[in-house]
């Protein structure tokens, strides 16, 4: 136990000397929270229209945001989604609709212009958005916080520590615990500051956030351990981990909700831990009962356990085989 404490203290000190990692990680966490707040305050995805000429039929409609312009904006502003459609009104009241977003939207706009209504679409809450952003950043940064493991492996420190009375288990345990603490504590502190200092409404109560955050941080550490152990060099691990994280987070709808879900698509993506995690936080924010989200939550925790065990097993096997 003494050896474990010693390893933890040393790892903490080594990590604390890498100001660049720490700064980048914590700045990104702040940005994730700010981004979620920004998105939520803007009111999600409205249909944005640029209107050339006078048209008052669209004002006061929830789903549309209308901007009056003098000259028609270029087509590239449609492509980069500044506007979803451009309406040109002639002097006699006839109008033209220009959109690249398909006939469905054009028909909807025409319907509304003719005096009809269309139903609103459900939106993702601020807490869910924030948790999604945080999950991706934690997964990306988790690998950074385990680079000490990779470096020790390359420099031979790992072998020496493993041969000392401390042993391999204590070494890996200390690495993971330090990474966990250095990701978890600042994230909670930043969220507390956002809530208490700036009075931001974040979708969940503070204790709930503190409890909830344990899971993504654990997932990040477990994933990092697995990738670090599986890749031969820490360099490759960082790149592989980054690529895997970005791909799977996009697939699972962590960054933004996937709108056009089809059955086979769900079939492919639902096994990802991120997808299940998003359903946990989404259901929690809606205030659903525990029976609704305990299943996906335990599924995510099972992934954590699998990553940890696999990482440890790979490391132990390679250590016994003399790779380090």
């Amino acid at each position: 136990m003494n050896a474990f404490g010693c390893l933890m203290r040393l790892n903490m000190q080594r990590m604390a000397s890498r100001k660049a990692y720490l700064l980048v990680t914590y700045v990104m966490i702040v940005l994730a929270i700010a981004g979620a707040v920004l998105l939520a305050n803007y009111g999600g995805m409205k249909v944005k229209l640029a209107v050339v000429g006078a048209l008052d039929r669209l004002s006061g409609l929830e789903r549309f945001q209308v901007e009056s312009v003098n000259d028609a904006p270029p087509v590239s502003s449609l492509v980069r989604q500044k506007y979803d459609g451009i309406i040109t009104v002639q002097v006699d009241g006839a109008f033209e609709v220009l959109t690249i977003k398909g006939e469905k939207l054009e028909a909807e706009i025409r319907e509304v212009l003719a005096g009809g209504t269309i139903p609103d679409e459900p939106q993702r809450g601020i807490g869910t958005t924030m948790m999604g952003f945080l999950l991706m950043i934690l997964l990306l940064q988790g690998v950074m916080f385990l680079t000490l493991f990779g470096e020790d492996r390359e420099s031979g420190t790992l072998r020496r520590t493993a041969l000392s009375p401390a042993g391999l288990k204590a070494y890996l345990g200390a690495q993971c615990l330090v990474a966990f603490l250095m990701l978890y504590v600042p994230t909670v502190v930043i969220i507390c500051a956002a809530r208490l200092g700036f009075g931001l409404e974040l979708g969940y109560s503070l204790p709930a956030i503190a409890m909830l955050l344990i899971v993504p941080v654990l997932l990040a550490v477990g994933f990092a351990l697995f990738v670090m152990a599986a890749c031969r060099s820490s360099d490759n691990a960082v790149m592989t981990g980054g690529a895997l994280t970005v791909l799977t987070c996009l697939l699972s709808g962590t960054v933004y909700a996937v709108t056009n879900e089809q059955t086979w698509w769900k079939y492919i993506t639902q096994w990802l831990p991120q997808t299940q995690w998003m359903s946990v936080v989404g259901k929690l924010e809606q205030g659903l009962a525990i029976s609704q989200w305990i299943g996906p939550l335990s599924y995510v925790l099972a992934w954590v356990a699998a990553f940890m065990i696999a990482g440890w097993a790979v490391c132990a096997r390679r250590y016994r085989a003399g790779h380090y």
């Binding site: 959109t99 690249i100 977003k101 398909g102 006939e103 791909l247 996009l250 697939l251 996937v258």
Partner: peptide, 18 residues
Amino acid sequence: LLILILGYLTRGQYGDTV
């Protein structure tokens, strides 16, 4: 792969012209 995945995911947000 990124283009394939992102393009597929968001194809509902775009039409046929672009």
